[in-house]
Amino acid sequence: MAERDNERSISQTVRAQLTLRDLILTGGLRPGERISELQAVEVAGVSRTPVRMALVRLEEEGLLEAIPSGGFMVKSFSERDVLDSIEVRGTMEGLAARLAAERGVSVRDTEPMRECLAQIDELIAPAELSFDAFSAYVALNARFHALLAELSRSPPVIRQVDRASALPFASPSGFVMAQSALPEARHILVVAQEHHRIVIDAIENREGARAEGIMREHARLAARNLRLAVKARGPMDLVPAAVLIKQTAN
């Protein structure tokens, strides 16, 4: 009975977390807006205990900030915050790549990554890319980065890569959809694909420093995408939760 109650509590916590996260990411809860436990209970439709846990988890994700007087506030992010999060992710992925290179991998180990690259090559082959092509790229790119982390064979590093990628706007494809509306869109994907090839080559040749360096540089493509999208303004409408990013005046 106790085990069943615990499973039910976890299920309600996840439900509350997903409901509240969706409200934040879609703008239903605005940056700076205060959300109390009671309000969250009404919105999520679950009891206070799982709601309290869900709010704490969203704080850990970086989407909420605890208020000293009680409750939580929806966070906003400066462009610098986002750039720093991308840098953290690049640093952790660089470490994963270096460990993979230094510890050694076989061609068989990197085969799933090369399959990803082959599929991406097909997507970006046309001179003009569709919105659907960019959407498919997001999924393939996420798989490539996940496989790269796994090559480190280090559970602590894999966890830290996952945590870094979960930081607001720091995922490997965080600004790809915004990028799709830019004139440089296809060129940036071609450069990213070349980075992918180089890091596999470096890992297979046990060149740890080279593998680490290319992944740190690769993350900076996302930073470039952010700057281009912010400058163009319109493409930011395609970024999930862009409402949380404070727009600075030109």
Rank of each mutant, 00 (worst) to 15 (best):
V107E: 15
D201H: 13
A40I: 13
P183K: 14
M1L: 05
M177S: 02
G28F: 11
L148P: 05
A181N: 03
D84T: 10
A96M: 05
I67D: 15
D84G: 03
L63P: 04
A40N: 11
A192N: 00
R233C: 03
R52Y: 06
M53C: 03
G70M: 10
R206D: 02
A181K: 14
A222P: 00
R30H: 10
K75N: 03
P156N: 09
I86N: 10
A96L: 07
V56Y: 06
R227T: 07
A232M: 00
Q247R: 15
G28T: 07
E60I: 01
E65A: 03
R21Q: 13
E7D: 08
L226N: 05
I198D: 00
I245V: 00
R163K: 14
E7N: 11
L228S: 00
E111F: 15
I120R: 09
M53K: 12
D162E: 13
R4E: 11
A164D: 13
L55W: 08
F72C: 01
L25P: 00
A96Y: 05
R48C: 03
R206V: 09
V138M: 01
E33T: 04
S135C: 06
L63M: 08
N205L: 12
D22L: 07
R114W: 03
V138E: 12
T26F: 04
A170K: 01
A149S: 04
S154L: 06
P235K: 08
H196Y: 12
L23N: 08
R34N: 08
F175L: 14
E93W: 05
Q119M: 11
L38Q: 15
V176W: 02
K75G: 02
E61C: 09
L182H: 12
R80I: 04
R15N: 10
P168W: 01
R227C: 01
A223T: 06
A222G: 09
S85Q: 09
E93S: 02
M1D: 12
L99S: 04
S180R: 11
S165G: 07
L140T: 05
L18D: 14
P172G: 08
R114T: 00
M113F: 10
L64H: 08
G45N: 11
I67R: 11
G28C: 07
A139N: 01
E207N: 15
